[in-house]
Nucleic acid binder design. Structure first.
Length: 291
DNA sequence: TGCCAGGTAATGT
DNA sequence: ACATTACATGGC
């Protein structure tokens, strides 16, 4: 009976803050409707509703094996153990207190790579808009739940590889269009093997990613962290750089490279997880105090 | 309106 | 090696 097919599944999990997780700038396709979150995972429509020590998931079709979703949500992770591994300092403690229940997702590598190629010097809201546009225009239509609006899968690399730069620029991505096109072609042609990237050491995997035009240290670390589960990867963006300088080095001026080296060491072994707590913490504070 | 956005590559010291 | 700048587009 555990294998019975159903459209609904209650995933037992404590310490899971869906709002924090889905608004923390790691994934860009989730939309909130009432108390629920609606999104597309592995080409399937799904609605997630928080419950007491659980997440209730509704799919558009009967599902036997829900591992595509539990893998994505990482509901099996022992969050307490990860948080225990964080360094004990005032900034980290404040972030953990403020963001308890924030999780890292395990995303599809291509969607993650493409999204973060589009992310450079864009606000998260704008990244969401661009991603939404390319999905609508180039993604495969998805089987929908009753009364739900139409939805599309994230476009496959083969699909984007066949487009012109002009068609991509029409999705408001500006100078990032050729970067996305090159990445799509590299994956479609097998020059970048995302399927087997996670077999490599983190340094080798990063080196492969950085070969792509438009992919540097930060974007490669996002992909390693958010898609490949390399929790030692620590993406340094403008928010994190500002936070590290303020919280840890208030009167020294460190370069990005120095910040990167400090953070990777200081927050190990789950530096990337710690990074997500700091990122969400300072960003929520920053947005809340903005006027 | 002008500043800035989950950066990167090219160019200038 | 390290600092500066161009790059599209749009939110606030």
């Amino acid at each position: 009976m555990a294998c019975a097919e159903s459209r609904t599944k209650t995933i037992e999990v404590g310490d899971y803050d869906l709002d924090a997780t889905l608004t923390s700038g790691q994934a860009f396709r989730w939309r909130k409707k009432d108390r629920s979150w609606i999104g597309i995972v592995q080409g399937r429509w799904v609605r997630l509703t928080p419950a007491e020590s659980a997440i209730v998931a509704d799919a558009a079709t009967d599902i036997g094996d829900w591992s595509w979703l539990t893998d994505y949500l990482q509901t099996g992770l022992d969050l307490g153990r990860v948080i225990q591994s964080f360094p004990q300092d005032p900034a980290m403690n404040a972030a953990v207190t403020a963001c308890r229940g924030l999780r890292l997702l395990r995303q599809d590598p291509w969607e993650c790579l493409a999204s973060f190629i589009l992310s450079s010097t864009k606000q998260i809201l704008q990244i969401q808009q661009i991603v939404s546009l390319i999905c609508q225009r180039f993604g495969a239509p998805i089987t929908m739940g009753d009364g739900q609006e139409p939805a599309w899968a994230f476009p496959a690399p083969e699909r984007l590889a066949g487009l012109s730069e002009t068609e991509l620029r029409a999705c408001k991505m500006g100078f990032r269009a050729p970067f996305l096109l090159c990445a799509a072609r590299a994956v479609a042609e097998g020059k970048l093997d995302l399927k087997n990237l996670n077999r490599l050491s983190i340094e080798s995997a990063r080196a492969e990613l950085v070969k792509l035009h438009g992919v540097g240290e930060k974007v490669s670390n996002c992909v390693l962290l958010f898609a490949f589960g390399r929790q030692e990867a620590f993406p340094v963006d403008v928010w994190i750089a500002k936070a590290l300088r303020q919280l840890y080095f208030p009167r020294r001026k460190l370069s990005l490279k120095q910040l990167q080296a400090f953070a990777t060491k200081h927050f190990a072994p789950n530096a990337g997880y710690a990074q997500q707590y700091l990122f969400h913490y300072v960003r929520m504070k920053g947005i809340a105090t903005r006027r």
